[in-house]
Computed example of a mutant assay.
Amino acid sequence: MKALGTVAAVIGGILALLAVPLVVVIVGVRSGDRRFIRALTRLQRDVVNKGAMQVAGQPGAPYAVVEHVGRRSGTAYETPVTPIRDGDGWVIALPYGDETAWARNVVAAGSAVLRFDGERRAVEGVEIVPIADTALAGQQPGVIKLFGIRWAVRMSDAA
């Protein structure tokens, strides 16, 4: 019986160690602290996105790719995103706020290419909108509330 208590304590400790980074991320994102957000977006760009880009845009993949051009640099970029259908277009949550670089680039250009489920789609009419005004509000209310997400990018399929 004592061995079970020790195993339970070890498992509990491991779970606590795994929960701490998640809590830090949630609190940091909700706080809107620019230094924290910058550090987190660098980590995402340099580590997480590299893995996501291995499958993003392919048939059946959970991620799509937004192809866009830097508004000042003119450099071509590819950013993995998770869009959902919203009427005749798409919406993408902006958990790091409305100053997210890829979103600002796409809004400035007014158009982009969305690679989703093995297809390249031209999109236009790009705008940043309150997330409450999108299909995401009804589909992911728990995540939106947990992270305090206020903004989303809305874009329409090009004619």
Rank of each mutant, 00 (worst) to 15 (best):
V106W: 03
D98I: 07
G97L: 15
E119M: 01
V129W: 09
A93M: 14
R120M: 07
A112N: 00
T100V: 12
T134Q: 15
D117A: 06
W102M: 07
A135T: 14
G97A: 14
V106Q: 08
D117H: 12
I131C: 08
P130N: 07
P95C: 13
A108I: 00
E119L: 00
G110W: 08
I131L: 07
R120G: 09
L94I: 10
F116N: 09
W102L: 05
E119S: 01
A103P: 04
E127D: 12
E119V: 01
L94A: 13
A108H: 04
R120V: 06
R104W: 01
R121C: 02
A109H: 06
W102G: 01
A132W: 00
P95D: 09
L136M: 11
E99L: 11
I92G: 14
F116M: 08
P130K: 10
G110E: 08
D117S: 04
I92S: 13
V126W: 08
A109T: 02
A112L: 00
V126F: 09
G125N: 06
V129E: 09
D98N: 15
T134W: 12
I131E: 11
V113K: 05
P95W: 06
F116A: 11
D133T: 10
G118E: 06
G110K: 13
D117P: 05
G110S: 05
S111C: 07
I131G: 02
V113C: 05
L136H: 05
F116C: 13
L94V: 09
D117R: 09
A108T: 09
Y96L: 15
G118V: 01
S111P: 04
T100W: 03
L136T: 08
Y96T: 11
F116E: 15
D98P: 14
A112F: 07
D117T: 14
I92Y: 11
G97W: 13
R104A: 03
R121W: 02
A122T: 13
A135V: 02
E127W: 12
R115I: 00
D98E: 13
V129M: 10
R120W: 07
V107H: 15
V123I: 06
A132Y: 01
I92C: 15
D133L: 14
A135F: 04
R104H: 03
L136P: 05
A122H: 12
D98Y: 15
A108Y: 02
A103I: 03
A93T: 10
E127P: 13
R120T: 09
R115K: 00
D133S: 14
